[in-house]
Simulated assay, not measured.
Amino acid sequence: MKMFVEPTAIYLHREFVDFRKAINGLAVIVEQQMQLSPLSGALFIFCNKSRDKLKILYWDNTGFALWQKRLDKAKFKWPSTVNSPQMTLSEQQLNALLGGFDIIGHQRLNYQSVAL
């Protein structure tokens, strides 16, 4: 995803969120439930109960922006085996999540050499 200015971090809020909430309601969740600052420059990812919509909230130094994605026929692979109320994601994990892939248990591949 190239539309964001280098986020300082990417946080996924694991509990499902009422999608009638907009910027202010989601910013309150970031502050009160996640104990983080919504002004930090990080991305904050939320999902609805039916797992077919995501919202991403971020501050871009001029104001809040809210991005939403709705899947037509599939569901997002929302992490259910993690015990913490939030997760920190890499950019690669965010892209996998947006692409419909399961992000739990998948680590970035780091190659040391090329063998023929």
Rank of each mutant, 00 (worst) to 15 (best):
V114Y: 12
E15R: 14
R14E: 06
E15V: 01
S40D: 13
V82L: 08
M1H: 04
Q107G: 06
D102Q: 10
T81C: 07
Q112T: 08
R14H: 07
L54V: 13
H13A: 13
P85H: 14
R108Q: 15
S37E: 04
P79T: 03
Y111T: 09
Y58E: 00
L94Y: 02
N61S: 15
E6C: 06
A22Q: 15
I104E: 13
L116H: 12
A22P: 00
A96F: 11
S37P: 13
K21R: 13
G63T: 09
P85T: 09
A42R: 07
N61L: 14
L26W: 04
D60S: 04
F46I: 07
Y11T: 04
Q68T: 05
D102S: 13
K55W: 07
L43A: 05
S40P: 11
S84C: 04
I29R: 04
G100A: 10
Y11F: 11
Q112M: 01
R14L: 14
L66V: 00
M1Q: 08
K77S: 04
A22L: 02
F76Q: 00
K49Q: 14
A74W: 03
L94S: 04
Q35P: 00
I104R: 13
L43T: 00
N95L: 06
N48W: 13
V30C: 10
V5F: 08
V28K: 13
A22Y: 12
P7F: 02
R20W: 06
A9L: 04
L57V: 07
A115W: 13
Q32K: 15
A27F: 06
Y58S: 10
Q92R: 14
V17I: 12
A27E: 07
K73A: 07
L97P: 02
T88Q: 14
P7T: 02
E31A: 10
D52A: 01
T81L: 11
S80F: 04
R70Y: 04
S84I: 03
K49D: 12
F44S: 08
V30M: 05
L97E: 03
G105E: 08
S113N: 11
K21N: 14
T81H: 08
L109I: 15
I29Y: 02
Q92P: 01
L89V: 11
A74S: 08
N110P: 02
I45V: 15
W67M: 00
P38G: 10
Y111S: 09
I103A: 00
P85I: 11
N83G: 04
N110C: 12
G41R: 13
Q86F: 10
G25I: 05
F64T: 03
L94I: 02
Q107K: 15
D52M: 03
R108T: 15
S80Q: 14
K73H: 08
Q35N: 14
L71R: 14
F16S: 09
K73R: 10
V5N: 10
L12N: 07
L39P: 01
N24F: 11
Q86W: 07
T62S: 13
G105Y: 12
R51G: 00
Q86M: 12
Y11V: 08
A96D: 13
K49H: 15
K49N: 11
T88R: 15
R14I: 07
L89W: 09
F16E: 09
Q93T: 04
T8S: 14
I45Y: 03
L97H: 03
Q32C: 06
M87F: 07
M3H: 12
I10C: 02
S90V: 01
H13E: 02
V5E: 11
S50Q: 15
L71N: 04
